[in-house]
């Protein structure tokens, strides 16, 4: 009938007990400015809630913002929850205050990219454009 118009869909989520979501909102805005459709779900998400939203919204990637120090628990838990719902092909990336040695371990365990404090919004938007492909 007509031309297919694929658009990247990204879920930006804030798991755990962080008290504010300014950083996550800035990233959501940056990804939208880069031309992507961003589903934003707000504070205090459990890994199951994130995975359920990712499946219902059929997103290509999930971006997590974690400032609470619980990144070594939350990233694997989200990846596990996605797997449980048959969505292991969804790219998981994130950002937060995360020490270098933890970054290495997370990258070795299925997280595609960690942005450290100071990463520019353009950098994040560009990374998604370059590294998240639209599923077929």
């Amino acid at each position: 009938m007509s031309d297919t118009q694929r658009k990247r869909r990204i879920l930006v989520a804030k798991p755990g007990l962080d008290g504010h979501d300014r950083g996550a909102k800035v990233v959501a805005r940056a990804l939208a400015d880069a031309g992507h459709e961003v589903v934003y779900t707000g504070l205090h998400q459990t890994p199951t809630m994130i995975a359920t939203a990712a499946v219902q919204e059929a997103v290509d990637a999930v971006g997590l913002s974690i400032m609470s120090g619980a990144h070594m628990t939350l990233f694997p838990a989200v990846i596990e929850a996605l797997k449980k719902q048959g969505a292991e092909d969804v790219v998981v990336f994130g950002g937060g205050i995360i020490p270098d040695e933890d970054v290495v371990e997370l990258l070795a365990n299925g997280v595609a990219k960690i942005f450290k404090p100071g990463a520019s919004t353009q950098e994040i938007g560009q990374w998604v454009t370059d590294n998240v492909s639209v599923q077929d």
């Binding site: 658009k7 990804l31 400015d33 031309g35 459709e37 961003v38 934003y40 707000g42």
Partner: peptide, 14 residues
């Protein structure tokens, strides 16, 4: 302008 969008209605349905 960007073709992007922020879809935030789920926030209220948590």
């Amino acid at each position: 302008f960007s073709g992007g969008a922020i879809l935030g209605d789920r926030i209220r349905m948590q």
